[in-house]
Each structure stands twice: as C-alpha cells, then as structure tokens.
Amino acid sequence: MLHRNRLLHAIVTALVVLLLSMPAFAHKVNIFAWVEGDTVHTESYFPDGRVVQKGTVSVYDSEDSLLLKGVTDEEGLFSFPVPKGDDLTIVLDASMGHRATYRLSAEELGGKETAAAHGEHSLQNSQRPKDRVPAVKILCGIGYIMSIMGLSMYFYEKRKKKKKGLGSG
C-alpha cells in the first residue's frame, strides 16, 4: 500500500514545489471604490490583475434597496454620481458566478477626508493590489487534508481492534 502511493506522492510533491515557486492567486474577483468630489469611481479586476470587462455593478443603500446599476468598461472602471449620503454597498457581478462586494461608508462619501483618501486610493489604483495566496495557506490546507486522512485511519483501526477484541472475548 505504501509504495503504491509513492508515485502519487512524488507527483504531488513536485506540484507543491512548483506552486510555491510561482505566484499563486486565489480565483476571485475584486471590486474597489473611491470617492472623488461628487463621483464614486469603481475598479474591478481579477486577482491576477486582469480587469473585469462588462461586469455588472449594482449599488445598494443601507436598507438594501437598489439605487443604480451599471456596466464596467474596457478598463474595468465604472463611475457614478454619489446617489445619497448613506452607507453604500457596491456589488460586482462578473458573470460565470463570480461576485464581489465593496462597502463605502457615509463618511467616505462626503467631507474633507475624501481628498486625503483619494490620494491614497489613486496610488493604490495605479499599483492594483494583487491577492497573492501565501504559501503558508497552501501548506495549511494540505496539512488539514493529511490530518483528516490520519484521523480517519486512526479511528478506523481503533474500531476494528475493538470489534476484534469483542469477537474473541
């Protein structure tokens, strides 16, 4: 049994080594929003940095009613005038079942902070943050899988022994 799995182990080890040496991105979409004067700008992108084209952006207020809807352009951007001074939830639907949300608080929509926030955001904007998956998380997941295997085998053996004990006694 042990050596039967040696080849599989080798393949997976090779895969993991390969993975750890290359950038790993979680497969989810992201939406990012910032305020500039009376306009809210949004940018939508995949974790590897590709922009989401023709994604549907819906804006909801704090009572979950739809305020407006729009489609992202070729650069993944969509802008709209501030609809009201409420907490906004911006939902991106990138089709194929991909979805992401971004929350803009009422304070961010008006007041002096926006200018400062804007400076920050446009910087972030030019260096679009990529969601790298840390290697630790990958190892962590593999650890979980191996623990599930180990535990189930342990309890199986224990039960088998118990049954045997009962049978002979």
């Binding site: 049994m1 042990l2 039967r4 799995n5 599989l8 182990h9 393949i11 997976v12 895969l15 993991v16 993975l19 290359m22 790993a24 991105f25 979680a26 497969h27 590897d48 998956v133 990958i138 997941g141 593999i142 899988i145 191996m146 599930i148 295997m149 189930s152 085998m153």
Partner: peptide, 19 residues
C-alpha cells in the same frame, strides 16, 4: 484507498491556484 484519496484531494486543492 485513504492515502490515495488524500493525496488527490491535496492535488485538487492546489490545482485551482495554477492560473
């Protein structure tokens, strides 16, 4: 078959990170 299932689960788990 448990070890094989676990190893393939691990492979499946990491595969989605290869874009």
């Amino acid at each position: 078959q448990m070890p094989r299932v676990a190893v393939m689960t691990a492979a499946f788990f990491v595969a989605s990170l290869i874009h």
